[in-house]
Design a binder for these strands. Structure first.
Lengths: 150, 150
DNA sequence: ATTGTTGCAAACATTTTGCAGGCTC
DNA sequence: GAGCCTGCAAAATGTTTGCAACAAT
């Protein structure tokens, strides 16, 4: 019986962040975060995929809890949500004017500001060319917190 | 009775694009596209909002048709969909490494390539600062057509 | 002991689809 | 006239919520 296994450290970035807010560190929350840490940064999963992977590793976490946990982890700044708008998709006219117009989005209240940037347009062109893609349009989404929500 | 009103031009970018594919120019498709042209480039609407606006202007178009039309117009390259993934949101770990990683997305097959860019990161920082936002992360989505789908 | 969290199932929201009738070419 | 398109309603998919039991602090 090893000493270190009995007296392991019980603090963690997740635990600290939660406790600060009166929230609790649960096995489910740890499992979800661990999953993302194991697949590595840069890989993205949907709620359904998180659920499936946890089931496969014989960790039963309900889908509802996964939705709640993902939202929490995003609010804590540990995960990043790859979407712009809250409810459903949004569409806009594609024109020369919009070909380089970008969004600054508040992750708390959803407030959105738009801006332009030639550098970004150029970066998109280069990326498309390098990969053999035919460029249509590029849009930068900057995730931030607006003055009102700090 | 004026001459020009009787003999007006019946071609349009929409009509031409459709006919090339054996598809048809219908009042519904025109109404949806006109709506986006009227609100101007840069404004974005959800399917539901398109529906509501058309109803309000006493043009009855069913919601199902709007969904079908939006998909069509995106495939034709006339509209732009402000989302990355098809079904639902996706999440990924937020780390220093991912703070500047971008997506090159094929609008036909969904294939996604990732890349990095310092210029983009810089542009995001500037935009956040100018608007008084606190930057969290920026991600560029480049919409394009991959070699396999041309 | 207190209070936040989970799981379940039902509710809700969004998007897709089968089919009969209607319209464009 | 042939075949694409629409509207309707139902189904499929994705997400949220109320509530009782449970668990972290």
């Amino acid at each position: 019986m090893s000493f270190s296994s009995q007296y392991q450290v019980i603090t963690s970035p997740l635990g600290d962040g939660l406790h600060k807010d009166g929230k609790r560190l649960t096995p489910q929350r740890l499992k979800v975060l661990n999953l993302f840490e194991n697949i590595g940064a840069g890989n993205h999963l949907s709620a359904e995929e998180v659920h499936a992977k946890l089931i496969k590793s014989s960790s039963k976490v309900s889908l509802a809890t996964i939705y709640r946990t993902l939202r929490l982890l995003v609010q804590m700044g540990l995960l990043h949500e790859l979407e712009i708008s809250e409810g459903g998709h949004r569409y806009e006219l594609l024109s020369n004017e919009t070909a380089d117009h970008h969004h600054l989005i508040c992750i708390r209240c959803g407030r959105t500001e738009e801006f332009e940037s030639d550098e970004v347009l150029k970066a998109g062109k280069v990326a498309a060319k390098v990969n053999g893609f035919t460029l249509i349009e590029s849009s930068l989404n900057v995730r931030a917190i607006c003055p009102n929500c700090i």
